[in-house]
Nucleic acid binder design. Structure first.
Length: 488
RNA sequence: GGUCUCGUGGCCGAGCGGUUAGGCACCGGUCUGCAAAACCGUCUACUCCGGUUCGAAUCCGGACGAGACCUCCA
């Protein structure tokens, strides 16, 4: 077991407090995160959640936990809206794009996989699909009915919240009380089949126009929205596992209903720790499809969104996101992104300098203390912003060593190098030293820079400045340093 | 209407009872033929009004403002 295990604290949405992380089985972690619904390309807000849980996954791995990370893919449309109408989002998209449901799902899954590569997300251990687990969903529903917490009406099955409340507490995650819910949503109670307005569908009878239909003991139909996560999480992680994550907006009803289903079928809550990542905002408002204030993860990398006048690299975006805590809102603005871009280059420059430093017999500062601070930051509920602040402290030290104002021993230097790289690249998932040098352009540039240096040596300033200005017009920036001239 | 979260310096964003968060910008300096870049340094803020406390951005109450959820949502 790693010496670093055992200090981790996680904010548990279930208790509303930071708790010491104690996995159910020592050394092992089971984590389930709600993945995308593939009826369109995931937007930047969706990506933030996945990036945050990727960071969490990565840190758990760094702590030497054996992590089984399950992130599902919702490829079955099965939603009922507030008026009780069927809104099969995937089927709807399929119709408008004149495709079959599975085509739609496949199309957007390819895009999602590409985004994961672009944004450097580690692949989960398993990415199960809803359509691949219809049988398991049906079995869960049967068990819930058997236990008396669900009823069948006209080919549909509903979860019986009132019955459930007699034995369990509905609303433990979202803090909602069944009695209060009644008052709150009185206007929304338009569904005739339900016994109680808060009951939710486990299985919905098929509509004639549905594109995807499955057989069940209750007739042809579609699984309810929440049951897929219950089926897949228990199949791959067991009845009770360590961490369940997802976006804040899934807390209610999705996660609340998952808890009810798990208790209703297996008698226990699915997860020990519930983690919720906060939303991505645009101008102070949640980025969402329905509001239309979203942009795509690829657009920002390619510079094709109207919101920003230039492209940003995926590394800069990840860095920018990591500067905010996963439980905080984050506003995407051009100024903030530019600031992150500069900050990131400062950090990455320092890291690239590390191998060129000269070592001394002693270190003038406490390197181990600094490294401990990296772990301490992440151990405190994955506080990546603090980690980054500490990495900047390390970057400053590196620069001071480079200037001869600080010293470091060989051992300390190698330790610092290892740990900085570990935290920036392996934990935060931010890659550094990605050179954009064009193989054809490089030798040409070497020649041009050489010619300019000659002119400078001859104090022929007009020629050297002409070269510099000419390159600038071509979009190439010359940087003169002590050790020579570089370009980008 | 109900439940909940939040309001930090020019901007982004940590902090959760006493100690410098950090980044970007600004300003000063080093370097440089000049410039840019880079590096170093400076910059001490917590919406407002009460209260608790030796001490509050941090706890409590109130006001104002913003946002999330209340069966589409990462």
């Amino acid at each position: 077991m790693s010496s670093h295990q055992g200090n981790l604290k996680i904010y548990n949405s279930l208790s509303g407090q930071k708790e010491k992380f104690e996995p159910i089985q020592t050394g092992f972690v089971g984590m389930y995160v709600c993945g995308p619904t593939l009826y369109s390309e995931p937007h930047m807000g969706n990506m933030r959640t996945f990036i945050n849980f990727d960071m969490i996954f990565r840190y758990l791995l760094q702590l030497d936990y054996k992590v089984k990370y399950v992130r599902n893919i919702t490829d079955a449309g099965h939603i009922t809206n507030s008026a009780g109408d069927e809104v099969d989002s995937i089927g709807k998209a399929a119709k408008s794009e004149k495709m079959q449901s599975l085509e739609i799902v496949y199309k957007y899954n390819v895009k999602f996989q590409e985004l994961q590569r672009i944004y450097n997300l580690l692949p989960p251990s398993i990415e199960p699909t809803a359509t691949g687990h219809i049988q398991e969903q049906i079995e869960h529903i049967e068990k819930i009915i058997e236990n008396g917490f669900a009823y069948v009406v006209n080919g549909s099955v509903y979860f019986d919240v009132k019955k459930y409340s007699e034995k369990f507490e509905y609303g433990i995650l979202s803090g909602r009380k069944v009695d209060e819910l009644a008052e709150e949503t009185r206007t929304l109670n338009a569904q005739g089949e339900k016994r109680f307005f808060a009951d939710f569908a486990l299985w919905k009878k098929a509509n004639p126009e549905d594109m995807q239909i499955w057989r069940s003991p209750w007739g042809n139909g579609n699984p309810g929205w929440h049951i897929e996560c219950t089926a897949m999480s228990t199949k791959y992680l067991g009845n009770h596992f360590d961490i369940h994550g997802g976006g804040m907006d899934l807390k209610f009803p999705h996660h609340e209903d998952e808890i009810a289903q798990n208790c209703g079928s297996l008698g226990c809550t699915p997860a020990k720790y519930w983690m919720h990542a906060n939303m991505l905002n645009v101008n102070g408002q949640k980025m969402s499809k329905s509001l239309g204030n979203f942009f795509l993860p690829k657009e920002i990398v390619e510079g094709t969104t109207a919101l920003f006048d230039k492209p940003y690299s995926p590394n800069v975006i990840r860095f920018f996101m990591m500067q905010a805590h996963y439980r905080s809102n984050l506003d995407f603005t051009q100024d903030a992104l530019n600031a992150a871009e500069k900050g990131f280059s400062r950090l990455s420059d320092a890291l690239q300098l590390i191998d060129k430093l000269t070592v001394s017999p002693t270190s003038s500062f406490d390197v181990k203390d600094l490294i401990t601070s990296f772990y301490a930051a992440m151990d405190d509920d994955f506080n990546a912003p603090i980690l980054i602040a500490n990495l900047f402290e390390a970057a400053k030290r590196i620069n001071l060593i480079n200037d001869g104002k600080d010293t470091i021993t060989k051992e300390d230097l190698s330790l610092l190098s290892t740990e900085m790289n570990r935290f920036l690249q392996d934990v935060l998932g931010i890659e550094i030293g990605v050179t954009n040098s064009d193989s054809k352009l490089a030798p040409v540039m070497d020649l041009v820079i050489d010619l300019r240096q000659q002119a400078r040596d001859n104090k022929d300033w007009s020629t050297s400045d002409k070269i510099r200005d000419g390159l600038a017009t071509a979009g190439i920036v010359i940087k003169d340093t002590k050790d020579g001239t570089s370009w980008s």
